[in-house]
């Protein structure tokens, strides 16, 4: 379970302080896909960065299974809370190197039982193990990034618009994979998106964010009947 309590963040820019998040609270439960929707610049990705402590909030608390994440060992936290970035970034010379790195980032020769099985789990051929990351399609790279994030055995999966670089077919496949993984591993999934159609397919809970503030929240019924005019306008804009 991942919980945000009154989280705020301000960043200083050339024009003074800019509020990125303002008093954001929510609770994402085990086994659910918690979807965060909002236009670009609404603070969605920042929420995910805060949850794995790539950044820290100015105010408020973030709790993982009722523990303040700032009290935890950050390296342990980051293996419990896996982040998949918007653009899949693979490093090193081969796909296998990425998977082994995830198994034990500090080891020079990390042990990983049957790395090919991890590729198969995300719908890829195990023959890709020896391939160079550049030789893969974007969709394949994103699936490798998924496999890499799953290897440490996280209980929370943070997905930052993981389908935005993919074509519709690859997106649909990835959304299916997300649902499967949630069920199979009983994961808490935070799915950030600006595309309503995709969020609709996977969402158990929805939070709409605008200008760093929570606009509206609720179950998937929110897509049909949003309460606020702003939410309606955002959804309408998305559907055009």
């Amino acid at each position: 379970m991942l919980e945000f309590e009154h989280v705020s963040l301000t960043k200083s820019g050339p024009d003074g302080d800019v509020p990125i998040l303002r008093d954001v609270s929510f609770r994402a439960k085990v086994g659910e896909v918690f979807t965060i929707l909002g236009p670009s610049g609404s603070g969605k990705s920042t929420l995910l960065r805060l949850a794995c402590r790539l950044d820290d909030p100015g105010d408020g608390l973030i709790l993982l299974d009722d523990h303040d994440i700032r009290e935890m060992d950050v390296l342990v936290l980051r293996r419990q809370v896996g982040l998949v970035f918007q653009e899949p970034l693979l490093f090193g010379a081969t796909v296998e190197e990425n998977l082994r790195f995830a198994a034990d980032p500090e080891a020079t020769a990390p042990h990983l039982e049957d790395p090919g099985a991890w590729l198969e789990r995300v719908g890829l051929d195990r023959e890709l193990l020896s391939r160079a990351p550049d030789a893969l399609s974007v969709g394949q790279r994103q699936r490798v990034a998924f496999a890499r994030t799953l290897i440490p055995g996280p209980s929370v999966l943070l997905l930052d618009e993981p389908t935005s670089a993919l074509d519709p077919q690859a997106s649909a496949g990835l959304l299916r994979l997300i649902r499967e993984l949630r069920d199979e591993r009983n994961l808490t999934v935070i799915f950030v998106s600006h595309a309503m159609a995709q969020a609709r397919e996977v969402a158990d809970q929805v939070l709409v964010l605008k200008d760093g503030r929570v606009l509206e929240r609720g179950g998937p019924e929110i897509f049909e009947s949003p309460e606020l005019e702003d939410t309606r306008a955002f959804f309408a804009g998305e559907e055009e």
């Binding site: 390296l75 980051r78 970034l89």
Partner: peptide, 17 residues
């Protein structure tokens, strides 16, 4: 920075990343 943060997100130390 994206590569460095991808490694940090996997639980690598700053030095390793």
């Amino acid at each position: 920075r994206r590569e460095v943060e991808a490694k940090l997100a996997l639980g690598a130390t700053a030095r390793r990343a």
